[in-house]
Design a protein around this nucleic acid. Structure first.
Lengths: 291, 291
DNA sequence: ACGTTATAATAACATTTGTTTTGTTTTTTG
DNA sequence: CAAAAAACAAAACAAATGTTATTATAACGT
């Protein structure tokens, strides 16, 4: 019951986000991206984390039709306890912790990495992936846009995906800016962009150009709310946070592999034949080591 | 982190349960059986649900060594938010599977991605990672070798790692074969190679050259046994198998992020300062999008 | 049985949390 | 540009939550 209400609230927030004034919008974005923390924290904690006053939270609750802030937060709390009761997939991590010492550090690292992967897979629904796959399969051209860290992800996607799809283009190539490639895009094309907050300006420029040209935008980001101004056709969300000094993209990587899987599936017989052909050609060309 | 503390507390409660007096025992049983509710509810709610007074809960907290009831409950709260974001991938996959048909294939994809990450982290012990990190930190130069799919992994490792380590070199560069770079390697250097069966001949050539020059070889592979002829100094193993037509490198990716984490940890203060400096320079240079 | 100690409930207290009020700033409208 | 309306933060207020003190009860040893 609570689950449903929670998702309905998030849906409403997402839809009405654009019409909200400054503070309420910041709250809505925070709630959309951090439903668990929002459910757990007190009104003061949430307010200070978001950077607004407490009664801004109360006003948003009233605006959404709730009598009190309590009623607004309640569905998020129920969702928390509901999700906690189901399976413990990562029990082995806890056992690691028991051993202490280096194993404990390993448990921390594993928790963080595993958490991002499972979160990415759980938050993304199969329909979004399927829709993205269909878009990509139907597109005339697919531009892959990313800079810095996520560029490696795009490279991987290109390397595997081009076997199935002859129409992939990595956007920043030939020492160009990404936007230079997107100039040739049109409404038959798809742009797949990967970036996390704070967004790379180059990537955003490319996304905006893509929308202007009428191409469909598939965005992989760590925040659904922050990406709304770009009006993506599909948004695939994965967390990137770690307890350390850099961001973790393993969640994105997992999503990309899932997307590749679905692409091959939906591509049908001929795609699978193409893959087989590639592999055959490679071993003929003495690309593999013989022991 | 919270997950782990929570399970330790529950373990303690379970063990000492028999020695507790009546009220404390009732509380302990309740907490063991209803950790989620206990984490969510207020002290009065829990007390009335259990049928004891509020300060019985406080006494139990003190008995367990906590300063306050808050500290006693905190791990359970953290575990709640943690499980909401990462806990029940298994359940979610199970639901997909129930639907049958195409949904079942998608469940398989998610299962295999998750499984590869889990196995990679579980099979690799912390000592190997720590040893690899020390080798890399002490090396004069570190050559990163990979071709095709894994090249994206090396690119990512380079992108993040060069912030901490100024001595990284991607081996296949300037349209060279990997082995061309390795020609300059010596016994003070380390070669980090990534490849899965069947091994890329180019990568293997580079590895053999590295050994001949006296450099230490760190190999990431899907098989420890098959890599033995290369006499690697350290072998990091992750499965790459999927039920589909291509290999999954998400396990390697997870291992690399773990290695990066340990590198930053062991690199100490100056490495962390370098990372901060990089980030500052980037935002100064208008590389990030302002909303 | 008696006194002592441990355990527990009640109630008083202090802190935190949610709500409402007030005044100021920002935005909108004429 | 000025007036009105909306949005907001700060602070006052009330309710809840957590903590401590007091008192009563149960368990234990001599």
């Amino acid at each position: 019951m609570g689950q449903i209400h929670k998702s309905r609230i998030i849906e409403q927030l997402t839809g009405e986000l654009a019409t909200y004034p400054k503070s309420l919008r910041r709250i809505a974005m925070y709630v959309i991206d951090n439903p668990a923390e929002f459910g757990m924290d007190s009104i003061r904690d949430s307010a200070s984390l978001i950077g607004v006053s407490t009664n801004s939270l109360v006003r948003l609750a009233k605006k959404l039709g709730f009598e009190t802030y309590h009623q607004f937060r309640a569905p998020f709390r129920e969702a928390l306890t509901a999700s906690a009761s189901s399976g413990d997939a990562g029990q082995w991590i806890g056992e690691l912790y028991e051993r202490g010492g280096k194993e404990r550090a390993r448990a921390d690292a594993a928790t963080s990495v595993m958490g991002n992967v499972t979160d990415a897979l759980r938050q993304t629904d199969a329909d979004s992936i399927a829709l993205a796959a269909d878009c990509i399969l139907e597109a005339k051209k697919v531009f892959l846009v990313a800079t810095r860290g996520p560029y490696a992800l795009v490279h991987y996607f290109y390397h595997v995906g081009r076997i199935a799809l002859p129409n992939l283009v990595i956007a920043p190539r030939h020492a160009n800016a990404p936007v230079d490639e997107i100039l040739t895009a049109d409404e038959n094309d798809v742009v797949l962009a990967i970036s996390s907050m704070p967004y790379s300006r180059e990537t955003i420029d490319a996304c905006e150009m893509a929308r202007k040209k009428g191409a469909k935008l598939i965005l992989m980001s760590d925040s659904a709310a922050n990406s709304l101004p770009l009006t993506p056709y599909i948004t695939l969300v994965s967390p990137v946070s770690t307890p350390h000094y850099f961001e973790s993209y393993v969640g994105f990587f997992a999503l990309l592999e899932w997307l590749l899987t679905v692409l091959v599936e939906r591509g049908g017989e001929d795609v699978q034949q193409r893959i087989q052909m590639f592999n055959d050609l490679r071993s003929d060309a003495n690309l593999y080591w013989k022991m």
